[in-house]
């Protein structure tokens, strides 16, 4: 009863969660065992994108801050794998040869935390359009920084032919990699679920709804928003780390601001208000990309049109539409009146 409105969504969310968890576990392995290894690749990419989208949703959905530079973190995470690999292949840093996983992951986390902290300190002093544009500009700054690193391929990118190794776990095996990605996503969604109901999460949401009010009850929102901003960057950096272990080739192009737009597209299309929204968004994104690009090389057109239409006509994304549908299909007896 105390959570009447949230309770309305519960059934929808529960079903979506169960369907997602099962589908992501069963389908790729089924296809893989059936001898179709290609699908495992698609699903790995999907899950990695979903992790990144969830990361963005922490600041966007929960905090209401439209950060448009999150592709930079994915890129930094991937380069945190690529650059050490480059050195261990071509010599120069032998110390990091074995159990390089800790180096890769550690580097990814450290760099992303630092970048998020520095840019967050500056950009979070602004709001609205300023915040959007500033995060965009900082993201693009990293893009140009990587482009200018000639040693690591600059514009042309970098080949990765080595995977992160941890004790007992080697990401070299595609099945292991998928399991790691999948479990990471589950853990992340659960973590975000906890956060959204925690004191920290409540403060973030309060600041989203009414920041002036939060100040008037004595809350310094900035500290919490900065923490969320860094956390969000870390999650995307982690997605980048996984991506670096997934692809054989990385390039600055993956950090371009239009990539940030794509992640945002996933979050919004899936529904920023729902826990599984970003995951749904990632699924739709991958399906569209896959289906449309089979049909026409001009598939971005349909992508763009879909984006415009979903903004104009579909509030709350797919998960919003789903939960509305769930509510209306359930009897109207749940209507509450006291």
């Amino acid at each position: 009863m105390p959570e009447a409105t949230i309770g309305k969504q519960h059934t929808a969310v529960k079903w979506i969660s169960i369907v997602m968890i099962t589908a992501l576990a069963v389908i790729p392995f089924g296809l893989y065992l059936a001898g179709n290894a290609f699908w495992l690749d698609i699903f790995t990419r999907l899950v990695i994108l979903a992790i990144a989208a969830c990361g963005l949703n922490l600041i966007l959905g929960l905090g209401g801050l439209v950060s448009f530079g999150h592709a930079a973190y994915i890129g930094l995470g991937a380069y945190a794998v690529g650059i050490p690999v480059y050195h261990s292949t071509y010599g120069g840093m032998d110390a990091i040869a074995s159990y390089n996983g800790f180096v890769h992951l550690g580097l990814a986390m450290a760099v992303c935390a630092l970048f998020a902290l520095v840019t967050g300190i500056i950009s979070l002093r602004t709001r609205g359009v300023n915040f959007i544009m500033i995060t965009m500009a900082f993201g693009q700054m990293m893009f140009y920084a990587i482009v200018s690193l000639e040693t690591y391929g600059g514009d042309d990118g970098l080949t990765i032919d080595l995977r992160s190794e941890f004790p007992l776990i080697t990401l070299d095996n595609p099945v292991t990699l998928y399991i790691v990605c999948y479990l990471s996503l589950l853990a992340l969604v659960f973590l975000l679920h906890r956060i959204s109901h925690s004191r920290f999460g409540l403060i973030l949401q309060g600041a989203k709804f009414n920041e002036e009010r939060m100040g008037a009850i004595g809350v310094n929102c900035y500290r919490y928003q900065l923490t969320a901003f860094v956390l969000s960057g870390l999650i995307c950096g982690y997605a980048g780390f996984l991506l670096g272990n997934f692809t054989t080739f990385i390039s600055p192009e993956m950090m371009d601001w239009t990539r940030s737009g794509e992640i945002m597209f996933m979050v919004i299309l899936g529904g920023a208000a729902a826990l599984w929204g970003p995951v749904i968004g990632a699924v739709i994104f991958i399906v569209l990309e896959f289906v449309l690009s089979e049909i026409t090389i001009y598939w971005h057109l349909y992508f763009g049109l879909l984006l415009i239409f979903s903004v104009l006509f579909m509030r709350g994304g797919v998960s919003g539409a789903l939960s509305r549908w769930f509510n209306s299909s359930r009897s109207s007896g749940t209507q509450r009146q006291a």
């Binding site: 959570e3 925690s198 004191r199 999460g201 409540l202």
Partner: peptide
């Protein structure tokens, strides 16, 4: 938010920092 959530937010604001990420505050 509900009336109770509104006031609970204010109570939370004065009861120490809110860097608590796990426990269900509601």
């Amino acid at each position: 938010m509900s009336l109770l959530d509104n006031v609970a937010m204010a109570v939370q604001a004065r009861s120490g920092h809110s860097f608590k990420f796990w426990k269900n505050a509601k």
